[in-house]
Write a protein that binds this DNA or RNA. Structure first.
Length: 123
DNA sequence: AACCTGACGGACA
DNA sequence: CTGTCCGCCAGGT
């Protein structure tokens, strides 16, 4: 069963993760459907200077789709750079998930990316 | 502790 | 456009 006492909608009891990953997942959950974010944005918001560390944590995300890792795209709004996907999540499936949330994709690029890019820092 | 890996991002050929 | 290389750093072994 899931516990929500700490604003989490994933079960850390059943599947413990590192503090870094927990922070990341919780942050990612603030990205609403229909919006996307990037690895770099997540890293920056976490005060982490390694976007790779973010990607690594997302790659092992055991809480999909509660933790919407499919809303994380490359810095330039493309879905590419998805070399070596794991956990059976394919690029095609991500496209479907995103399109199901109203996000339009042409080729491997998100249409109107800057407009639907979620911003963690108010500006 | 040392080493390897990587769903990144940038630079370069 | 493609392919390499490198810095980044958390996590796994």
């Amino acid at each position: 069963m899931k516990e929500y006492s700490n604003n989490r909608s994933f079960d850390l009891t059943a599947c413990p993760v590192s503090p870094f990953a927990e922070k990341l997942y919780r942050l990612l959950q603030t990205v609403p459907a229909g919006r996307v974010t990037t690895y770099g944005d997540l890293a920056k918001a976490l005060g982490c200077r390694s976007n790779r560390a973010v990607g690594q944590a997302l790659a092992r995300n055991p809480f999909a789709p509660e933790v919407p890792c499919h809303r994380v795209v490359a810095w330039n709004g493309t879905l590419g750079g998805f070399m070596g996907h794991r956990a059976g999540i394919t690029l095609a499936k991500k496209k479907l998930l995103l399109r199901n949330e109203g996000i339009r994709i042409v080729g491997s690029a998100i249409v109107d990316f800057p407009a639907i890019r979620h911003r963690f820092f108010t500006s």
